[in-house]
Nucleic acid binder design. Structure first.
Lengths: 336, 336
DNA sequence: GTGCCTTATGTGAGCGCTAACACTACCCCA
DNA sequence: TGGGGTAGTGTTAGCGCTCACATAAGGCAC
């Protein structure tokens, strides 16, 4: 059934060398004569030979596969991250195996990681935006290369993260700069680090401007929760500026404001986070904060590869700064 | 470096049997005494043993991994499909390896498939919504289990697909039933099978009602292209009903109509396709067609597993019917 | 008892590869 | 002239598992 293509010995025979020499060519070892190298490459091409990853994994103890653990790969953020990760990994000759989990408790995460370990992956990227994930990760064997993305900033493990705080600060500041007295915040879940970071940045910006933050409107990333919060905010005449923790929340808020006849941005300004491709086509086009998922993916993969090659752990940390994308949903507050 | 956990021989020694007996227990072979089976299981648990997938893959010629080839896993459809596929596969004890491709030409597809083949995947799911993909697939070795999703309905290979035609027909009919004389269509790319199917369904419904279809407005799935088409449609007073090939196109259309002061649904009704989670929070909430991605994933995986187990190819085919989700973006046409 | 099943278990080979080491040229410098 | 490099190549073992076969123990017919 399986396509049993040519093996290394077949290539070796055709090239008139030993299988070991073929192996050396394949792995870019020095000490192979240029002429031999060419002969081997020709034989590889002629036979359409592809090295057997399983055999290699067996003998080296690890495969050319990177495991990714993520929760909801349907969401825009994780999906983008996963795609970027896959792209980058492919360029480095690695395949990506996904292990999505329903919940981010430590049982689920551990199980997903274990599954990857069973396949002897070369390294693991965990997109672990919540507290409970961290605990699971600390119990893991220390000798497997691991990078967390959007994980706990206070835990000593290799971490790549979007600078949520800076992004939220920029969004809030942008609204203050437009002349708004204060800014309301429809947040993500506060037990998510990105949610918490965005709350923190919002709060910081307000405090720095000498404004005491108004009550938080807690959402759960979904447009539905944004809509619910929006219905409350729409009824409060003093509200002139809203920063939402992501674009989908903003969509829900916009819809609620629209229903209550509150015009955006004439009466109320709104800023989102994520810059989903559709944000430019919301009504009105949404000013938002764009995290660079490609950069995050590149950084985390680089970090992982460094660990894989050096064998050393090391609690590296890298933060990617997001950028503000100004569109039409922000204007000065209505003059009284 | 790698966590060299216990091997099968360690389990065997602890249980006082041969490694082969352990293997038999692991693979559920008959002819193992109940008592022995329990002893082996106990040893496995005690040592925390996990079978080495690489070794198994090496000897059997295939791994417990399913390769998925997809193009843009950031789009809602593919992302949902991938997530559902992963979930289902995990339940069956399979891991999922993603190989996304930038373009859907046959070079890229072949390359992605080859990469999976190198890792000796057990089977491959190709999400191949365009013509050129089909050609690449036909050249593939016949003995590797393969299922295409949203692929060419006219090609004799195992295929699972959403019934695009029926969905589009339902959407169009829904608008006609509301009293509209005709329905305009903002399409997806016509070289995508789902795009083509939705055009076909729209056309069929109109012809069945004795209406000759108005000119097609070609889009490319993006909100941006929906917006451009919407700008044209907004200027045409005779337009009262629009069916868009997906929800993002609808978002762009809604935005354009809004800018031109055309009220939805009072003046113009709009129906989308996909039912993205945000569709209920568009302005107004979007009536749309919901494909069941979970069902597609389950069906394709089932089909793949059947091939893997039986070894037989067989050109099976399964079509998943989508359902219409009625919201507020449809109303009778304005009376004159 | 002999022969021949069936059931439960063990033994040996080998999947395709890499790591470690062995070996052969050949060169350089004393 | 020989000792000791170094570049290029071959040989061997073994990663952890499954497959095919060998073996052992018991049952049942004659």
């Amino acid at each position: 059934m399986a396509v049993h293509g040519p093996a290394m010995t077949d290539v070796a025979r055709l090239a008139g060398v030993s299988h070991q020499t073929v192996s050396r060519v394949l792995n870019g070892h020095p000490n192979v004569r240029e002429q031999t190298r060419l002969r081997v490459r020709a034989a590889i091409a002629e036979l359409g030979y592809r090295p057997n990853g399983a055999a290699r994994a067996l003998v080296t103890g690890r495969s050319q596969v990177i495991g990714v653990v993520a929760q909801n790969t349907t969401l825009y953020g994780p999906a983008s991250l996963l795609a970027a990760l896959e792209q980058t990994a492919a360029e480095e000759g690695f395949a990506v195996s996904v292990g999505s989990v329903r919940d981010l408790d430590h049982r689920s995460i551990s199980a997903a990681v274990e599954r990857h370990l069973a396949h002897r992956v070369a390294g693991i990227v965990v997109i672990a935006p919540v507290e409970s994930a961290g605990e699971a990760l600390e119990r893991l064997p220390k000798d497997v290369p691991l990078v967390t993305v959007d994980g706990d900033p206070h835990r000593p493990m290799p971490l790549v993260t979007v600078d949520q705080v800076a992004g939220a600060r920029a969004a809030t500041q942008h609204l203050l700069d437009a002349g708004h007295r204060t800014v309301w915040h429809v947040s993500g879940p506060s037990d998510w680090f990105d949610g918490a970071g965005r709350i923190e940045g919002w709060r910081e910006a307000l405090l720095a401007a000498g404004v005491s933050p108004p009550p938080l409107m807690p959402g759960d990333w979904s447009a539905a929760s944004g809509y619910r919060c929006g219905q409350m905010l729409a009824r409060m005449p003093e509200v002139t500026a809203i920063f939402t923790a992501n674009d989908h929340l903003a969509l829900g808020v916009l819809r609620a404001l629209h229903e209550f006849g509150r015009r955006v941005p004439a009466e109320i300004s709104v800023v989102g986070f994520d810059d989903v491709p559709e944000a430019a086509y919301f009504i009105p086009p949404l000013t938002t904060v764009r995290p660079d998922f490609d950069a995050v993916a590149r950084a985390s993969l680089q970090m992982l590869l460094t660990q894989i090659e050096s064998g050393s752990g090391g609690a590296l940390r890298q933060t990617i700064a997001p950028t503000l994308v100004a569109r039409d949903s922000v204007a000065p507050p209505p003059s009284r």
